[in-house]
Write a protein that binds this DNA or RNA. Structure first.
Length: 137
DNA sequence: GCCAACGTTGGC
DNA sequence: GCCAACGTTGGC
């Protein structure tokens, strides 16, 4: 399987990029949306994900990598929901804001905007490269 | 099986 | 603080 790209949302007040860096590895659990959970199940070790700050900041702040995949959510007593573990890779040179993403016609189809409430979203390789270029440009 | 009511998320 | 979008629940 080829590498997939993702976008994972978190409220920085609850668990932000700095928390992930401080811990070194974070468990992505507590997802109770079927589509988001399905995305979690599709993840493989080595996939990369944008780390997005929702609510406060509303911007992509860094890149994380999937360090463990296919886990059972430890917060689910029934063991039906999925979880993964992630490690920080690097902070973006410049954060890419939701405003920038919305203003860019090339990103009009991005799942982050189309399904704005999804906590784990798909990023296409094209979107990945484009957002990286925005960060560096 | 339909749909109204309600709860949650997250942008503004 | 408000509201739109979406998911879930429950009455019928």
């Amino acid at each position: 399987m080829s590498k997939h790209y993702w976008l994972m949302k978190s409220e920085p007040d609850a668990y932000g990029w700095d928390d992930l860096v401080a811990e070194g590895e974070g468990t992505w659990d507590g997802v109770r949306n079927h589509r988001a959970a399905n995305n979690l199940r599709t993840m493989e070790v080595g996939d990369e994900a944008f780390f997005y700050h929702s609510n406060v900041g509303r911007e992509i702040v860094g890149i994380a990598t999937i360090s463990q995949a296919g886990l059972v959510d430890p917060t689910d007593p029934e063991g039906k929901w999925a979880a993964v573990k992630v490690k920080p890779v690097r902070k973006l040179a410049n954060p890419v804001t939701l405003k920038q993403i919305k203003a860019d016609p090339e990103l009009a189809g991005i799942e982050l905007i189309k399904l704005s409430r999804l906590s784990v979203a798909v990023i296409t390789p094209e979107e990945w490269e484009h957002i990286l270029a925005m960060s560096e440009g």
